[in-house]
């Protein structure tokens, strides 16, 4: 065997260039860590009395002011409504845009790009910022919160719907096309059965997220339990803050349980 042939049979997982770039990446990561550690500005005085501050805060929270349960529950019901209605509106808007984004359903680059632009816009603006925007348009209240949740969720749900559609088995679609099915029939009997589990999974997951997100929208006046939280915080009634926080915690856990059990049933 010649030397050249011997060299050809020398197998390594990475090419020298790949090795170099991997090393460069590790070096960069370590450097970044060192530099960031050196620039953390912790004021020592704050750190020293942190334990006292924390115990003080918990002492003020205990015992929770049970008389505050009434406004908290009202706020919570509003929060659930905001989250649910917001999710439904988001899905209604995200499905058609998701169809435009899926490259196999809409083989048009300009339309795909437009849909992706809508998704990025929706996702890159925080729900609190969406809420501020809608409070400015419609005034404070749950309507602004609902729309904020809806617009924030379009990007998330739409992007995932589009991906689910792109993963649908192309063969089944081809078979329906070959049978002379219209576009609508192909969507309803070819794509929909294939993406149905993903669809419900995405919708429930987003509803779960939206319950948490809508709980704080009241801080900018967009309705829900956040209004009760904001009031209590501003008045420094920590025993009332405690009631609201516990209530939110319980609802988030309950939502989690509901979503998990429903999801195992539909999948």
């Amino acid at each position: 065997m010649t030397v050249a042939a011997q060299l050809d049979r020398d197998w390594q997982r990475f090419t020298p260039l790949k090795r170099l770039s991997r090393f460069a990446f590790y070096l960069f990561a370590v450097l970044a860590l060192v530099i960031s550690l050196r620039t953390i500005d912790v004021i020592p005085e704050f750190l020293y009395d942190a334990p006292d501050q924390m115990t003080d805060l918990f002492k003020r929270m205990w015992p929770p002011d049970l008389s505050y349960i009434q406004p908290t529950l009202q706020g919570l019901i509003e929060t659930l409504h905001i989250a649910t209605l917001g999710t439904i509106i988001a899905i209604v808007l995200a499905v058609p845009i998701g169809l435009l984004a899926a490259r196999n359903v809409t083989p048009n680059f300009a339309l795909n790009l437009f849909a992706k632009f809508v998704f990025v816009t929706s996702r890159s603006i925080n729900s609190l910022v969406w809420a501020l925007l809608f409070v400015a348009v419609f005034g404070p209240g749950p309507l602004a919160g609902t729309l904020a949740i809806a617009f924030r969720s379009i990007g998330f749900t739409g992007k995932l719907f589009a991906e689910a559609m792109e993963e649908a088995n192309a063969g089944s679609i081809e078979a329906l096309t070959a049978a002379g099915a219209s576009r609508m029939s192909t969507l309803l009997l070819g794509y929909w059965p294939q993406i149905r589990p993903a669809f419900w999974s995405i919708a429930l997951f987003r509803w779960d997220i939206n319950i948490r997100e809508s709980a704080v929208l009241g801080i900018v006046g967009a309705g829900g339990v956040g209004v009760a939280l904001d009031t209590a915080l501003n008045l420094l009634y920590w025993d009332q803050v405690a009631v609201v926080l516990i209530a939110i915690f319980v609802v988030v856990v309950l939502a989690e349980i509901v979503v998990t059990s429903v999801r195992t049933r539909i999948l």
């Binding site: 063969g171 081809e174 070959a178």
Partner: peptide
């Protein structure tokens, strides 16, 4: 048309 991979809609 009949296909090699059958191309049924699996979840129906």
């Amino acid at each position: 048309m009949v296909f090699q991979e059958y191309n049924l809609v699996e979840r129906l």
